[in-house]
Structure formats: structure tokens, C-alpha cells
Design a protein around this nucleic acid. Structure first.
Lengths: 287, 287
DNA sequence: ATTGGAATGAAAATAAGGTTACAAAACTGG
DNA sequence: CCAGTTTTGTAACCTTATTTTCATTCCAAT
């Protein structure tokens, strides 16, 4: 008993009375939107009384008008939802409800929603800020986000000079910010269970006149009040922890954009780095 | 004042409070469907009280919830009647060829291919290995993957005891492996520009009889010869660098799986950790 | 025409939704 | 750490929506 409202209407069509036929006419005329208002309005529109409508949806097999309406909403949702997010089997070989599929599903949704919330203008502005070598960049992360901030630091350091990494969880961070000047850029990662020390760091930076870029979650760290630019990523997944995948994606995209904007310079720096690696025999020559 | 609800939400985003942000999160998560039920249900879903929601829609410029809902319905109708379903870009507001869309496209492809290549049986086996507290776990990462390995370490440490983190790029790693015994688990991250020191570490671990789990890229690190389990992630993106998003996803999924397998134990450890945090006043109470 | 049965709508009863008032909780700035 | 401010939730209230009851109307068969 989980066919669409439209199908049910079709099925019982022949056994309908005059008033009921008026109703189906109105519903199908603008399906399914017209069914989303109140029962009263729909009844008026069809020129019948509300009790007639209430009886009718029960005939259709719904417990009442609200349930009927919920069914309509569900159909509509299925109809407009993005097909890529609905795919529920990423690993074809894993069982249907396997965590590989459940988790990936959630993460793809997070990515989609995160991207939908990014303002391209802000993104480009931040790209330009990070590409501008005339102002140093400080990158800070908290307990969970330290790893992510280190990742951004590592790459940005190859692209340009004047990049610094701060561990906001350590109370040694004031040392690291000693040289901070007005208009310097500070990128701060802060996701929920927002840490006091990270906030303090942001306040200090703001007081010094630094321009703050905040990478946070959908609930937004309190630092957003101090930040010139705020990017929020979706982090909720079926787990006791949050997911930083969407945030990683945003960070990597930022890296790619900055690299693109500063490619001439970057190429030089990468070359020097390679030479140093070669001299130190860090990598294997082949394989 | 006849812009969409979404636009209004975006405009006031910065001046929103915690509860209100929770609400916008839920609304945007499944926009605009989630707003079509009753105010009560939406409030419950967002974890706030219905008055908060009522006040909020008034802030947005609607006379009350019904008017707000009517606006949503109108938008939905306009969206549905529009035959061109423009769903080919991730950031609707960014130009078609913007790096936000190009990069995300590539990453989604990476995720799909990575998941398709994971053997659920191996995944479950590794989950069990990592959940088994009778054998210590050592986690190592290279230059680029250090951040990722630290992330796995951080979470696994909360889940179980006997987790160690090694920086393969440092030549101090032999110290860290002094206590390594036969049948201990070693998780190694190694992506292209495979590093000599990481290979050496793997060889040492293999010689000691450790069981090696390798997280590598699609071209596979030479360590795969030594590893009992190998997971390869796609990492290529339109950039001079590689993307670790798929690898992050796989790592997080592993964390979630291990946590699920060892939930009783994990809950205890998390509780202790929370108590310590509370005592140290690391986090803010709210917001 | 008359009667029985189904269909319908008016009105009342009930339930749910939405709003307001107020007190508690949390944050802010000293 | 404390007073003042803001935010939030609880409880009571009012409003609207939905369902039930019941009298009326309509229709078909005698």
C-alpha cells in the first residue's frame, strides 16, 4: 500500500460520486501542489464541503487528511530531489545497509549542501587574499581540526611565502602570533564543541586588526562574529563523530584556486622544493 | 520584498543566534520540503521550541508561520513548473566552469570509484582488527598524509587503548616502533611520491611480523607487497596536487565502523574524556 | 408519487497548530 | 566573578484545521 496518490485516485475513479469527482479534478489539475494547503481551502476550491474531502481520503486508504498530505509531500520530495544524492549503493558489493554505503551517502549529501552554501564571490575574495604575498597568512586549528589546518598549511607553504601554522590547543599560541600585524590574514578552523582557546585566539587576532577567514560547521562557531569571511561546511554523519570530508574538499578547492591564481610563483617554488627533495633522496626514483 | 526564503535566510545569516542557525540548517538541508509540515514538527526536527521558530519567521519578514509556509509553497510551485531542471552544478551561484564546480565534480568521481573498489569483506576484517584491543595499533603517515594519519589516530585513541602515532618522515620513527611485536597492527598511509622512509618503516614492521594495513592511491605504493590489506583511493583532481578527500572518507568510515563495533567500550572512554574536558573547561557551554 | 439508501453539507466537537507572556538559562562586558 | 542583556524554552492561551454528528437532499426503484 505504498503507491502514489495519483495512482490511487485513478484506481477508484469509477466508483466516485459527483462531489468526489470534482475533488479529483482539482487535485490532478495542479498535482500535487493544490493538495498542500489546508483541507478547507482545497474543499472550497473544489466546491465541496470539507467533510466530503475528509471522507474521501479515508476511502483512498489514508487515516486522515494529514496523512494524505504527508504522502503528497513525500512524493514531491522524491520527484525533485537530486538523483546523485539518492543513490544509496556506492559500494555495489557491500550489503545494502552496510556502513560503507550509509556513511558515503551522508557525506555526499554534506558535500552538496556545503557547496550550495558557498558564496562564489566570497570564495574568490578569500582566494585573492591567500594568494597575496604581501600579507602573511596564519593558519590555526583546534583539537579535531588541527590535522586539517596542517594540511592547508602544508600546501599553502609550497605556493607562497609567509605562511605560519598555529596550534590553537596549545597555550603557546600567543608566541606564534607575536609578529601578527594589521591586515594580516588569519585562517581559523573551528567546528562544534567550539574551544575556548580558539575563540581567544580569534579575539586576539581581531583586536590586532587581522582579517579573519573562518572555516566552521553549519551551526557556526562564535568566531563568525569576528570573521570577515565565514565558510560553513556540513559535518553530520551517522556516527558519534563529525565528518570533515566536506571541509577537506573546501580546503583543497581553496588550495587549487590559490595555486591557479599564483601559478607563476608556485612553479618556481615547487621546482626549488623538488631540487631539495632530490638532494635529500626523500622519494624513490622509480615505483 | 519578494525574494525567496533561501535568499532571506542567507541575508540574515550573520545575525542569527544558535537556535536560529539550527533551524536554517534543517530548512536548507532539505529545501524547501522540510518547511511544509507543521511548525511543531519542524521545531522538533531542528531541536528548538516552536516559539523560537515563530519569532524567527517574523524576523525574516513574514507575518507568521502560515505566511512563511505559503511563500515556500509558491516557490516550490514555480520550481516545479519550470521545465529546465538545472541540476548540473554544485554551486548554483557559481559560474559553470568555476573551480568550485570543477573540483567538486572530480572529487565526487573519485569517491564513486574509490568506493567501487573497496572489498567489503576486507573492510570488515580491518574493522575487526582495529577494534581488537588485545593488539596495539600503530598509525603512520608520510609528508602529505601525516595530517590524515593524525586524524585517524586522534579518533581511534578515543575508541580504544593502545593506539600510537608515528611520523614516518621523521627519522625518529625507529624509537616509536621499539615495542612493536608480532601480530600488532600497523596502519600506513602512503600516496604517490612514495617516500623511502615510509617504505623502510613498512619493511621493518613486516620483518617484526606485524600485520600491515595500507591506505594508498590507485597506483599503489610499493608497500602493498608487504601489506595484508590494501585500500586504494582515487586522488587525481584538476590541480597540481592530489586530493585526499576520498581517503579521508574511507578513514572516517573506518572510524565509524570501529566505533560501532566497540561501542560499549567507546562510550565509557568518551564519558571519561568529557569529564576531563569539563574539568579543564576546554569547551564553551553553548554556541 | 413514495420510500429506502446513499451522498452531502451545516454545525458542533475535537484536535492540532500557532502565538504570546513570562521565567530561566546563557552570554556579554565590565 | 557579577550585573545587565539577550536568547531560549515552558506553559497558557488563542486560532485554525480536522473530524464527527446529524439533518437534509438527491437519486433510483417500486
Amino acid at each position: 500500500m505504498d503507491d502514489t496518490v495519483q495512482e490511487r485516485l485513478k484506481r477508484v475513479q469509477d466508483s466516485l460520486t459527483r462531489a468526489e469527482r470534482q475533488v479529483t479534478g482539482v487535485i490532478l489539475e495542479n498535482y500535487p501542489m493544490s493538495g498542500l494547503g489546508s483541507i478547507t481551502r482545497l474543499a472550497e476550491k473544489a466546491g465541496v464541503s470539507s467533510p466530503t474531502l475528509a471522507r474521501m481520503v479515508q476511502k483512498l486508504g489514508y487515516s486522515g487528511f494529514p496523512e494524505f498530505q504527508a504522502a503528497l509531500r513525500e512524493e514531491l520530495e522524491a520527484q525533485i530531489s537530486n538523483p546523485i544524492a539518492k543513490r544509496d549503493s556506492w559500494s555495489e558489493t557491500a550489503p545494502h545497509g552496510h556502513i560503507l554505503n550509509r556513511f558515503t551517502d551522508a557525506v555526499i549529501g554534506n558535500i552538496r549542501q556545503t557547496l550550495a552554501g558557498v558564496d562564489p564571490g566570497e570564495f574568490d575574495a578569500v582566494t585573492a587574499m591567500l594568494a597575496d604575498e604581501s600579507h602573511p597568512v596564519y593558519i590555526a586549528g583546534g583539537r579535531i581540526t588541527h590535522a586539517l589546518s596542517e594540511y592547508l598549511y602544508l600546501h599553502l607553504q609550497v605556493i607562497r611565502k609567509g605562511v605560519h601554522h598555529i596550534r590553537a590547543t596549545s597555550n603557546a599560541w600567543p608566541h606564534a602570533l607575536l609578529d601578527l600585524e594589521e591586515s594580516d590574514t588569519v585562517v581559523i578552523y573551528d567546528i562544534r564543541r567550539y574551544e575556548n582557546s580558539t575563540l581567544k585566539l580569534a579575539e586576539f587576532a581581531a583586536a590586532k586588526g587581522a582579517r579573519i577567514v573562518l572555516m566552521t560547521d553549519q551551526w557556526q562557531s562564535p568566531i563568525s562574529r569576528l570573521a570577515e569571511f565565514t565558510f560553513s561546511s556540513r559535518i553530520a554523519v551517522p556516527s558519534a563523530w563529525d565528518s570533515t570530508v566536506a571541509m577537506t574538499l573546501l580546503s583543497e578547492t581553496l588550495i587549487a584556486a590559490v595555486q591557479e591564481a599564483a601559478w607563476d610563483r608556485t612553479r618556481e617554488r615547487m621546482k626549488s622544493l623538488e631540487d631539495m627533495f632530490d638532494a635529500a633522496r626523500i622519494f624513490r626514483k622509480f615505483v
